[in-house]
Design a protein around this nucleic acid. Structure first.
Lengths: 333, 333
DNA sequence: GTGAAAGCGCTAACAC
DNA sequence: GTGTTAGCGCTTTCAC
């Protein structure tokens, strides 16, 4: 294995000069720098990150903590974050925790990330006080999806997005509107589901429509959960004329359920979601779009900005959403 | 920051003993071990991975190289691999390269992973000779999707899966069967697309059906690509009665195109895919399922087995696929 | 069963 | 502009 010493000897300089030359630091003559670079390339030298970390105190790695990578939203955010982080010289350390509460606890209690990363990107979970402490010990944190005081954050206005979806249905003339959301006790402790639910109820209230708990079903934020929830509502004596699902995946499941029951979207039931993920267009799904890449890039940028600026305030940004009207909603017949 | 020295002092032993105790090594009395463990917990001590790596020569990290994380297959494989790697004490370093050839070249030429990881998991690309050399320098490699000599590998029989899909259509009585595949010059240099294409043609040949190039369209392995490809085929003077798409995403795009054109699946056109991803059921898509979790777990296990066993042969495993018949295929009318 | 000490490969402060 | 040197925090021999 080639070390910095090999390069130094081959270039006829000291290891300190090699280090400076390779990092583009001043106090190295142009001639020397060129020679060192040439030798390093020739010898296929790669600096040891472990040694560099130990000596410099920086790991040049960012931890990415998320419940899953195999969910559209998380994968997309991670991808866009990487596009900013990698060119800045940072590696990405992936921690997908799963839904399991035990696993989650273990991950945080072990201080998984301490001494391993310079900063953390958190996705899709609403951390407890202990978790906030544990993660904060690892470096500056940016979180996507919920605001946490002391951390940078990027999110959408979940309640507002839900209200916008609901207003669309209400403006079309719907009065009997179902809701498909998450579990009452969300295993990820994320706030977004509760916010969206609040938006649903608030929109109803604003329109002077009574809340009907039998029109609220649990869809677990998954396709099949959405389908099951819709099936349940279709069995009601008085079916809803429209359904608002708190994410596109559940909305797609709902559309499937309607069709399997021999009914049509939107003629018999209108369906609206939140996200505007890739598949939404395929389902001709009306939805409230949230910018994904922007959230990943923003969060990554916040981490970078926070590293080395312990003093500065941590921004909490809310990014805008937009109603995308497609063919899955129309006035009730 | 708590170091091993702090623990040693607090426990009244040397740092060597702390190290042994914490690693469960022999030559430490049970009493001492317990005391050290207690003190370490008390002090919330976490060993520095950089220092450990530098001293031991192991990074306890595995590099994951993939073109994207935001593709169903890759995300699922990564997730299942992590479930094996994390408990074994390994971190996951994510490198999603994107499609960009330049970026890809840079990634490999810089020897991105050398001295950073103990092993590598490669997904979704068919490495060139140089890339094989570059990655091999980082440690034992396991690759998913294609066999590479000198590396461990897990894959499905792509040609066989394609033939199975085709035989299903042919057995149903179809003779005019379209194909939606990847680009002729695959930017990822992956072999799977070519293998599947070969399976398509071979199945036709075996059934004594002439190959008709106008029935072969490019779908870029994406939903929209599949839709565009299908639209193109629907414009043909003689439409195919069935279409085989080389992945489910393209198949779903194709189904959408058929419906938008006012035709029906499967009455007018049968559609079959490969993958059996989560959404396939929603589209009632007949497809050839490939085991995803198994591939991730197997590949991860191979890396673990290879680490510390430089001599042993590298297994090349082919996992079985299965035809899943749903409602998107039927006999031509 | 325990401790002393020699590195691992690098960065950064300092001297020249 | 360049070199010397003192660590960074740990693992691992080797002596006791």
């Amino acid at each position: 294995m080639t070390t910095i010493r090999d390069v130094a000897e081959a270039a006829g300089v000291s290891i300190a000069t090699v280090s400076r030359a390779l990092h583009g630091l001043p106090r190295v003559s142009e001639v020397t720098r060129r020679r060192v670079l040439a030798v390093a390339t020739e010898l296929r030298y790669v600096a040891s990150p472990s040694a560099a970390s130990l000596a410099s105190g920086q790991t040049m790695a960012i931890g990415v903590v998320a419940p899953f990578v195999n969910r559209w939203f998380f994968a997309a955010v991670v991808h866009s974050a990487e596009e900013l982080l990698r060119p800045a010289g940072y590696d990405l350390l992936l921690y997908s925790l799963g839904t399991d509460a035990v696993e989650r606890r273990r991950a945080f209690s072990g201080n998984l990330l301490r001494k391993r990363v310079d900063g953390v990107l958190v996705l899709g979970l609403n951390p407890s006080a202990e978790e906030i402490a544990a993660l904060s010990a690892a470096g500056p944190v940016a979180i996507v999806g919920v605001a946490v005081s002391g951390w940078s954050s990027v999110r959408i206005d979940d309640e507002g997005a839900a209200r916008r979806a609901m207003r669309h249905l209400i403006d079309l003339g719907h009065r009997r509107i179902g809701y498909i959301g998450g579990e009452p006790a969300d295993p990820l402790h994320s706030e977004a589901p509760a916010d969206r639910h609040r938006g649903y109820r608030r929109a109803l209230a604003e329109a002077g429509i009574d809340i009907n708990p039998s029109l609220e079903a649990v869809g677990y934020f998954s396709v099949r959960g959405g389908r099951a929830a819709m099936e349940q509502m279709l069995d009601l004596p008085a079916r809803p004329t429209a359904v608002f699902a708190a994410c596109d995946e559940m909305a797609m499941g709902a559309i499937h359920a309607v069709r399997r029951a021999g009914a049509r979207v939107p003629e018999d039931v209108s369906v609206i979601g939140i996200d505007d993920q890739e598949m939404a267009e395929l389902f001709d799904l009306t939805t409230v779009a949230q910018p994904v890449d922007a959230q990943g890039t923003l969060a990554a940028g916040m981490i970078l900005a926070a590293i080395g600026n312990p003093g500065r305030a941590r921004p909490a940004v809310t990014v805008p959403t937009a109603l995308i009207v497609r063919g899955s909603t129309r006035a009730p017949s």
